[in-house]
C-alpha cells in the first residue's frame, strides 16, 4: 500500500467519524457499497463464534432503513456522540482492496447530563476502491462494552 492510498484510507476513517458524530444520518450509508455488510456485535459473540449481532445489515438499503428508523420511528432520548478512532492497522492490502482494523471509543452526552464512555471496541473492515472513492464493503464493529447503557440508537 503506497502513501497516497494510506492517506486516503485515514481520510475515510476520519470522514466516517465526523459523519456519524454530525447528526446528519443520511451521510452514513454513503460510506458503504451497495452490497455492504455492517454488523455491530458484542465481543462475547464474536469470540465464541455465535452469529448473533446487535445490529446486522447486509445492504445499503438496510442502512437507509435504519436512518429512517432513527429519524422517524425509534423513540429515544436525544444525545450527542463523539467517536475517537485510532489509526488503522492494515492487515492486508491486495490491489484496491484493504483489510484493516482500528480501535474506537465513543462518548455519549445526553442533554443536561455529563459525558460518559458509551461504547468501546474495534472496527474490522474491508475497504474497496469504487468510482466514488474508497468505501466500506464490510464493517464489523466488535464492542468490548459488556453492558449497553440502555440502548444504542445511532450508528457507531
Amino acid at each position: 500500500m503506497d502513501f497516497q492510498a494510506y492517506h486516503e484510507l485515514t481520510q475515510l476513517y476520519a470522514d466516517y467519524a465526523s459523519a456519524v458524530d454530525s447528526g446528519n444520518w443520511d451521510l452514513w450509508p454513503e460510506f458503504f457499497t451497495e452490497q455492504c455488510s455492517y454488523r455491530l456485535q458484542p465481543r462475547e459473540n464474536h469470540e465464541r463464534g455465535f452469529p448473533l449481532a446487535t445490529l446486522s445489515f447486509t445492504s445499503k438499503g438496510m442502512l437507509k432503513d435504519r436512518v429512517y428508523g432513527i429519524r422517524e420511528t425509534l423513540f429515544h432520548d436525544p444525545y450527542y456522540q463523539r467517536h475517537v478512532v485510532g489509526a488503522p492497522v492494515i492487515r492486508r492490502a491486495e490491489g484496491e482492496r484493504f483489510e484493516c482494523e482500528a480501535n474506537y471509543a465513543v462518548f455519549r452526552t445526553k442533554l443536561s447530563e455529563v459525558s460518559t464512555v458509551f461504547n468501546v471496541g474495534r472496527y474490522i473492515d474491508t475497504v474497496v476502491r469504487t468510482p466514488d472513492g474508497l468505501k466500506f464493503a464490510s464493517r464489523l464493529v466488535v464492542y468490548d462494552s459488556e453492558m449497553i447503557p440502555n440502548s444504542i440508537i445511532y450508528p457507531l
Binding site: P42, N45, R48, L52, M147, I148, N150
Partner: peptide, 10 residues
C-alpha cells in the same frame, strides 16, 4: 444458541 445481547436499563 445464536448469541447474546446485554443491556443495563436504569
Amino acid at each position: 444458541i445464536l448469541g447474546y445481547n446485554r443491556q443495563r436499563i436504569p
